[in-house]
Design a protein around this nucleic acid. Structure first.
Length: 1037
RNA sequence: GCCUCGGUGGCGGAAUUGGUAGACGCGCACGACUCAAAAUCGUGUAGUAGUGAUACUGUGAGAGUUCGAUUCUCUCCCGAGGCACCA
C-alpha cells in the first residue's frame, strides 16, 4: 500500500452526468414489465408542467419517493417507477394566452424542460414509459373512459346552477371555489344555470366510505375523505300542510335528530323548494315572498358569504304545517339558510336544539320549546355546561326556558312517549313510531355531490359525444315488449292504457298472451316469449310485470339479444312477502308448488346486466306479494330500484304515475339526443385552433370551430353536431396509473395481464393537498372499472402516504415573494446528491420541512467530507475492536428507509461517517474493505451517483443500485455492556457500566452501594427499588 | 363554529408498549493552521448559579394518574391546514 494517496476532486457535475448517461444506456431502470418476479409499483403524483419549470417541492417529493424505491429495489423487488405530465388544464391555457403563444408550442417546450429537469435529479424513472395526458394517444382512452361511464348511466347531463368565474369565463366545481372566490384567479364567483356533464359519484358514496375501513392509509387522510363524503343518518319525516284548515298535501324533511320532533316549532323551505311556487295561489303575502325568493336565488356566493352572519327569511302566510308528533299547527317559512341541494330542501326547525334555528327563531320571535334535558340518562347527572366562568345552574335554567340553545345529547322532555329516554333511545323509538304511523322513515344523506366534469375551455379532452336530432325523432319509434304477470290478465294486455300511449308515440308494442292457468311454468313461458325477444333490437324496451318480468330475465340471461331499457314492475325477483303456506291459503285453486319453483329459480344478474343499457325496478312497500326490504338489500349492479308508496301490486289497468315514470325514462324531450362516439372513432382530436379564447357565452371555445362541430351521427348517419365541452383534468389524473404499465398498447387503455401484474399500486406518495379530490376520484373510477369487468380490485392504491410541503425560511414559497428555490440552480451549485440528501434531512417527510440556504451549505460540507474520507481510508491500522457500528447502522438506516423516516436515516449516516472519521487510522485492511463496501451500499438510495462512484472505486460488479441491501450481524447489535441508569425518586443521579445480563438483585445492590446514591439517600428510609431490566434502577426514598 | 395535525434550545428537528430530554445538523463562541481572510480541523454550546465537580429549573399553560410523564387523562391557550348555514 502506498502512503498518502491523492484524493480525487469531488466533481459532482461530471460524475452525475456520467452515471445518468450510463444508467440510461444500460437501461438499468427499465423494469422487465412482463417477467418481473417481484413487481413493486412505486408511484408518485405526476406533475402539472408549469411554464416556470419544476418546483423544488416536486424535487422534494420525487427524490424522497425514489430513495424509497431504490431501497425496495435493493431488497430484491422489481421496482417500477414511472413519470409523466398532467398537462391539460386551465393554467397552461391561461399562460399561453398571456404570452400570446399557441398552447401546443408552449406545451412542447415545457415538456422538454420538465423532462430535462426530472432527468437531472437522479431518479430511477423508467423513461421508456411516460404518460402525457394532453397527447391523443392518452386522451383517446380518457374519452373511452368517459364513454364507459356514459354507457353505464354514470355520465349524464343536467341543467345545473353552477359556479361561473367571470374572469376565467368558465365553470368551476364546488371544490374549486374557495370561500366564494375562484381558486385560480380569486375573482368572485357567480351563479349561472348551464347544462353540464356529471359523473354519478354519489352512487358510490357508500362504497367509497365503507372501503375506508380496511384500506391501509393514514388515519387523517381517511378522516378527510369521510368528512368529504359526509354521511349522516337520520329520518325523513312528512308534515301535513294545511291551508285554511284544509289538508293540502305534505312536506317532507330530513333530520338527524328525530328525537327532537316534539320541539319542531316551525318549518323552513329553501328558496328553490317547489312548494313555494306551487303554493303561490294560497300564500297571502305572495309579493313579499316572491321578492325574497327571487333575491335569494340570484345571490352570488359572494353575497351569501357576506350575509352569512345574519339570517333572513319570510313567513308563508296562509300556510301551516302539522307537527305529526305533537299535532300542533306550526308556521312555514322560506329562508336561504336552508339549502336546496341537501336533504329534501326543507327542514323542521327545532330552535331549542339547533343553533341556526335558534338564531332564526329569536330574530323572528318564534316559539322555542326545550325537549332535551342536558343530563346523563344513566346517572341522572346534569352535564357540565359552558366555560368554567359561567354559572351552570343559570345556564340550565335558560335552556329550560328556551333562552339558550342546547345541541348536545341528553334526555327527552316535553316529548310525550319519549319522555325520560336518552337521545339514542329516543331516536330509535321515534323512528319506530314514525314508521308505524307511516309518516316517516329512516334515511341517509350524503354531502358528496355528483362530479361535474364539463369544462367550457379548449385545453382538455373533448367529450366524445355527438348530438343528433334525427335520433331524437327516431328514439320514440321503438319496439316495446310488455309482459303480464301470473294473475290472469285477460288477453295478455296488461296495462292497456300504457300500450295505447306508447303506440301513439310511434312505438311498436307486443303484448303476448302467456299460459296463465293454475300451474305456471317457467320453461313454458320462456318458450312462448322467445319469438318476441327475437323481434327486438338494441333500441328496444321491455316492460315486465310480476312473474312475467322474471321469465323475461331468465330468457335474457341465456340469450345474446341486447335491449336498451328494461322496466321490472313489482317483479318476482324479490322474496315473497309472507310464506308459501299463506299464499296457498289465499290461492286455493293454484298450484303453489310450481309457482314457488318459478319464483325461486335463480338468476345471475351479472349475465343480464351487460345486455341492458339501463334497468329499473319499480316496487311498492305496500305490495301484497313482493318483499321490498329484500330489494333494498339486493343492490344489484346497475339496477335502479324505485320504491313507491301505496301500490298493492301494480295490477291496475291505469296507473298515471307508472306511465309517467316510464315515459320520462324512455323519451327525451330535448331536441337532440346524446350519441356516444364509437370506440373505433376515438380519439376525438382537439382541433388546432389559433383563437382558443372562450366565448364567454357558456359554450366552450370549440363551439367556434364549425369544422369540428359538424359531423355525422354514428347511429343514423344524419348530420349532427359534436359536444363542445372538454372534460375536467381530474378525469385525466383519475386513471393515469393504469396507463403506465401499458403505454405501448394502442388497442386498449390498459392491458389485462399487465394490470393484473402491476396493480393495484403498491405505494403511492404525494401531497396532502390531494388527499380528498384526486384520491376520491381515482378510487371512484377504479370501482367503475371493476364493475365493468376490466379489473378485479376495488381500490387503486394499497398504501398511500401524504408528505408535507416545504417552506423557505419559514414562509410559503411564492413567485410574488420572490423566495422560490430553483432546483436547477441548486443542482448546478451543489449537485443532485447533495440536494437530495439535504431535502431528506429537512424534517419528517409527512410534515414537510423548511428550506434554508445555510442548511444546504452544511450538507455540502458533509458530502465533501464523505468523499474525502472514502478515498483517504487506507487500512494500515491494527484494527478497531468494536466494529458493531457498521451492523447497527445497516439495521437502523434500513428500518428508517422502510418507514420513510429519511431525516433520521440521514442522521444515522452522519453518525456513521463521524465514527469512521474518528477511527480512520486505526482500521485494518479487512475493515476498510468492509467499510467502503458498506458505504457504497447504504448511501445508494439517497445519494445514488456518489454511491456508484464508490462502488466503481472498490471494483464492484455492475451498478450499486442493482445490489442487495447489506445484511447485518444480529449478535453485534446487542451491546454486552450497558450503562445502568440510577434514579432517586425518578431523578437521574448516577450511571454505572454493567454487563447486559446483570441480575436484578445485583443491579439493585450496586445501585444502592454507589457513592453518589448514598449521598442522596443520606440515611433516609429506602421505600422501594424499581428495576427495569437492561435500563435503570429507581430508588424511592 | 366543526374536523385534522402540531407546539421541545438562538434555529431545523430527534426521542412513544411511560424509563438517561435535546440525537443529527445549522448558527454561535473559542482555539489551531494563515501575514491575513476564506476553506479546513479541534473544543464548547438548554437556562440559571458556580473556576469546577455539581445543584436547581426546563418539552405552550394548569391540574391529574404514576416510583417515574415530551409520551397517558382532563381543562385551557396558541399556530397550521381543511371544511363551513349539510338540518
Amino acid at each position: 500500500m502506498k502512503k498518502g494517496r491523492i484524493v480525487p476532486q469531488y466533481n459532482f457535475a461530471k460524475i452525475e452526468k456520467k452515471w445518468q448517461k450510463s444508467w440510461q444506456e444500460k437501461k438499468v431502470y427499465e423494469v422487465d414489465i412482463n417477467n418481473a418476479k417481484k413487481p413493486f409499483y412505486n408511484l408518485m403524483m405526476f406533475p402539472y408542467p408549469s411554464a416556470e419549470g419544476l418546483h423544488v417541492g416536486g424535487v422534494y417529493t420525487y427524490t424522497g419517493v425514489d430513495a424509497f424505491g431504490r431501497f425496495k429495489r435493493m431488497q430484491g423487488y422489481d421496482v417500477f417507477e414511472p413519470m409523466g405530465l398532467d398537462g391539460f388544464g386551465i393554467h397552461s391555457e391561461n399562460y399561453a394566452m398571456k404570452i400570446g403563444e399557441h398552447i401546443d408550442d408552449v406545451s412542447k417546450r415545457t415538456e422538454k424542460n420538465f423532462y430535462r429537469q426530472l432527468s437531472s435529479i437522479g431518479n430511477m424513472f423508467d423513461w421508456s414509459r411516460t404518460v402525457e395526458t394532453y397527447k391523443p394517444e392518452y386522451y383517446r382512452w380518457t374519452q373511452w373512459l368517459f364513454l364507459q361511464l356514459f354507457k353505464k348511466g354514470l355520465a349524464y347531463q343536467k341543467k345545473a346552477k353552477v359556479n361561473w368565474c367571470p374572469s376565467c369565463k368558465t365553470v368551476l366545481s364546488d371544490e374549486q371555489v374557495i370561500q366564494g372566490q375562484c381558486e385560480r384567479c380569486d375573482s368572485f364567483v357567480e351563479k349561472r344555470e348551464l347544462k353540464q356533464w356529471f359523473f354519478r359519484i354519489t352512487k358510490y358514496a357508500d362504497r367509497l366510505l365503507k372501503n375506508l375501513d380496511w384500506i391501509d392509509w393514514p388515519e387523517d387522510v381517511k378522516t378527510n375523505q369521510r368528512n368529504w363524503i359526509g354521511k349522516s343518518e337520520g329520518a325523513n319525516i312528512k308534515f301535513q300542510v294545511e291551508v285554511a284548515g284544509e289538508n293540502k298535501g305534505e312536506l317532507e324533511v330530513f333530520t338527524t335528530r328525530p328525537d327532537t320532533l316534539f320541539g319542531a316549532t316551525y318549518m323552513v323551505l329553501a328558496p328553490e323548494h317547489e312548494l313555494v311556487q306551487s303554493a303561490k295561489e294560497v300564500i297571502e303575502n305572495w309579493s313579499e315572498v316572491d321578492k325574497y325568493v327571487k333575491k335569494a336565488i340570484s345571490k352570488s356566493e359572494q353575497e351569501r358569504k357576506n350575509d352569512e352572519k345574519t339570517k333572513t327569511g319570510v313567513e308563508l302566510k296562509g300556510i301551516s304545517a302539522i307537527n305529526p308528533a305533537s299535532g300542533e299547527k306550526i308556521p312555514v317559512w322560506v329562508a336561504d339558510y336552508v339549502l336546496a341541494g341537501y336533504g329534501t330542501g326543507a327542514i323542521m326547525a327545532v330552535p331549542a336544539h339547533d343553533a341556526r334555528d335558534f338564531e332564526f327563531a329569536k330574530k323572528f320571535g318564534i316559539e322555542v320549546k326545550c325537549v332535551v334535558e342536558p343530563k346523563d340518562s344513566k346517572t341522572g347527572l346534569i352535564f357540565r355546561l359552558g366555560t368554567p366562568k359561567e354559572d351552570p345552574q343559570e345556564k340550565l335554567e335558560k335552556i329550560y326556558k328556551g333562552e339558550e340553545c342546547y345541541e348536545g345529547l341528553g334526555v327527552s322532555m316535553n316529548s310525550g312517549f319519549l319522555n325520560g329516554k336518552s337521545t339514542t333511545e329516543a331516536k330509535a323509538e321515534m323512528l319506530e313510531w314514525l314508521e308505524k304511523k307511516n309518516v316517516g322513515k329512516k334515511s341517509i344523506d350524503f354531502k358528496l355531490r355528483d362530479w361535474c366534469v364539463s369544462r367550457q375551455r379548449y385545453w382538455g379532452p373533448p367529450i366524445p359525444i355527438v348530438w343528433c336530432k334525427e335520433c331524437a325523432k327516431n328514439q320514440n319509434k321503438r319496439k316495446v315488449l310488455m309482459i303480464h304477470g301470473f294473475e290472469g290478465v285477460g288477453d295478455g294486455n296488461w296495462f292497456p292504457h300504457l300500450k295505447k300511449e306508447l303506440e301513439e308515440k310511434g312505438c311498436e308494442v307486443f303484448t303476448p298472451t302467456l299460459e296463465t292457468n293454475t300451474k305456471p311454468d317457467l320453461e313454458q313461458w320462456m318458450k312462448q316469449l322467445k319469438p318476441y325477444l327475437d323481434k327486438l333490437d338494441e333500441n328496444s324496451v321491455i316492460i315486465g310485470h310480476s312473474l312475467g318480468s322474471k321469465a323475461i330475465l331468465h330468457l335474457l340471461e341465456g340469450n345474446k339479444q341486447k335491449v336498451d331499457k328494461i322496466f321490472l314492475v313489482a317483479s318476482a325477483i324479490g322474496n315473497l312477502k309472507r310464506d308459501w303456506k299463506w299464499l296457498a291459503d289465499r290461492w286455493k285453486n293454484s298450484d303453489v308448488e310450481s309457482l314457488r319453483k318459478f319464483w325461486e329459480a335463480e338468476l345471475d344478474w351479472s349475465k343480464i346486466n351487460p345486455k341492458v343499457n339501463e334497468s329499473f325496478a319499480i316496487v311498492s312497500k305496500d305490495d301484497l306479494y313482493v318483499d321490498v326490504s329484500n330489494y333494498e338489500a339486493m343492490e344489484l349492479d346497475g339496477l335502479n330500484v324505485e320504491i313507491w308508496d301505496g301500490h298493492r301490486h301494480f295490477q291496475q289497468t291505469e296507473n298515471a304515475a307508472l306511465k309517467d315514470f316510464i315515459f320520462e325514462n324512455l323519451f327525451s324531450n330535448s331536441e337532440a339526443v346524446a350519441v356516444p362516439v364509437p370506440d373505433n372513432q376515438l380519439p376525438v382530436k382537439l382541433p388546432p385552433m389559433k383563437d382558443f379564447l372562450p366565448e364567454g357565452t357558456g359554450k366552450g371555445p370549440l363551439a367556434k370551430n364549425a369544422e369540428f362541430v359538424k359531423t355525422t351521427c354514428p347511429v343514423c348517419g344524419a348530420d349532427a353536431e359534436r359536444e363542445t365541452d372538454v372534460s375536467d383534468p381530474f378525469v385525466d389524473s383519475s386513471w393515469y396509473f393504469f396507463r403506465y404499465p401499458s403505454t405501448e398498447f394502442d388497442d386498449v387503455a390498459f392491458d389485462k395481464e399487465r394490470t393484473k401484474k402491476w396493480l393495484p399500486v403498491d405505494s403511492y406518495i404525494g401531497g396532502k393537498e390531494h388527499t380528498v379530490l384526486h384520491l376520491l376520484y381515482s378510487r371512484f373510477i377504479t370501482m367503475v372499472l371493476k364493475d365493468s369487468g376490466y379489473i378485479d380490485f376495488d381500490e387503486p392504491y394499497k398504501k398511500f402516504f401524504g408528505h408535507g410541503l416545504i417552506t423557505k425560511e419559514g414562509a410559503k414559497m411564492s413567485k410574488s415573494k420572490g423566495n422560490v428555490v430553483n432546483p436547477d440552480v441548486m443542482i448546478e451549485k451543489y449537485g443532485a446528491d447533495t440536494t437530495r440528501m439535504y431535502l431528506r434531512f429537512l424534517g419528517d417527510f409527512s410534515q414537510g420541512g423548511d428550506w434554508r440556504d445555510s442548511g444546504i451549505e452544511g450538507m455540502n460540507r458533509f458530502t465533501k467530507r464523505l468523499w474525502s474520507l472514502f478515498f483517504e481510508l487506507e487500512g494500515n491500522g491494527k484494527g478497531v475492536d468494536d466494529f458493531s457500528m457498521i451492523d447497527k447502522t445497516i439495521k437502523v438506516v434500513g428500518e428508517d428507509l422502510e418507514k420513510l423516516s429519511f431525516n433520521t436515516a440521514v442522521a444515522r449516516l452522519m453518525e456513521f461517517v463521524n465514527w469512521v472519521k474518528e477511527n480512520k487510522n486505526q482500521f485494518n485492511e479487512k475493515q476498510v474493505k468492509k467499510i467502503k463496501e458498506t458505504m457504497a451500499l447504504i448511501f445508494a438510495p439517497m445519494m445514488p451517483h456518489i454511491a456508484e462512484e464508490f462502488w466503481q472505486e472498490i471494483g464492484g460488479e455492475s451498478f450499486v443500485c442493482e445490489q442487495r441491501w447489506p445484511n447485518y450481524d444480529k449478535d453485534k447489535i446487542i451491546d454486552n455492556e450497558i450503562e445502568l441508569v440510577i434514579q432517586v425518586n425518578g431523578k437521574l443521579r448516577d450511571k454505572i457500566k454493567t454487563p447486559r445480563d446483570i441480575t436484578e438483585n445485583e443491579a439493585k445492590k450496586i445501585s444502592l452501594e454507589s457513592e453518589n446514591i448514598q449521598k442522596f439517600i443520606n440515611g433516609k428510609e429506602v421505600r422501594k427499588v424499581i428495576y427495569v431490566p437492561g435500563k435503570l434502577v429507581n430508588i424511592v426514598i
